[in-house]
Design a protein around this nucleic acid. Structure first.
Lengths: 102, 102
DNA sequence: CGGTGGCATCAGTAGCCACTGATGTGAGAG
DNA sequence: CTCTCACATCAGTGGCTACTGATGCCACCG
């Protein structure tokens, strides 16, 4: 219920390129070169963002020979969705709560 | 369905203080001085963040004499929750899609 | 009508972070 | 073994932004 939203996770997803990556990975599991091709970003840049996403627990890696596949972790996104849903419901219920002017 | 997540909205909510404000406003409608008192932040700083939240459509204002009440817009948060839920579901369905190594 | 309190705006600053080029590492191909 | 390719790491830099102090504006109180 009173699960406050994870600030760090939102901050991580707040970057346009990272959100782009997450959106792409929501459709299929890809490796870095695919992401380079899809986004047009440099490999170094993507590697940095993927590291951030990995450390935030948003994606997980699966080595495949020389390649590294990145897979999105749906539970993390789903949990975030639930947290926002809770927040929205809380806001709806408290619509008429108004603290008196001091 | 394929509603991509609004980057700007997430970026706005990615700031710790702004998320704090949103969480507080999810419980009750407050005016600036209440938020100063709750968060311990300076009035100027809060005013800046509230402006950002207002321009992003997250909150709306209701003047009450000399005071300005801020109310959270639940629809915006709910829509965001839906977008993340869609993303999570999409990721679950595409769990086994893996593009071939180039 | 002056004074006060609530809030917005302005200009300046410091810190963070996204992006880049160069380099390191490790697996596969030949 | 050597070369190549996929990817990670490192160090440097520019731009954005959160925060601050000063000031302006407006509504209410006396």
């Amino acid at each position: 219920m009173m699960t406050s939203v994870d600030t760090e996770l939102i901050r991580v997803l707040g970057d346009p390129l990272r959100l782009r990556i997450v959106t792409l990975l929501a459709r299929e599991t890809l490796c870095t070169s695919h992401l380079v091709e899809e986004t047009g970003a440099k490999q170094t840049n993507l590697s940095n963002h993927l590291k951030v996403l990995r450390e935030a627990g948003v994606v997980e890696t699966e080595p495949c020979g020389r390649f590294t596949y990145y897979r999105l972790r749906p539970e993390v996104i789903a949990q975030l969705a639930d947290q926002f849903a809770d927040l929205a419901e809380s806001a709806r219920n408290a619509a008429e709560n108004k603290r008196a002017c001091p």
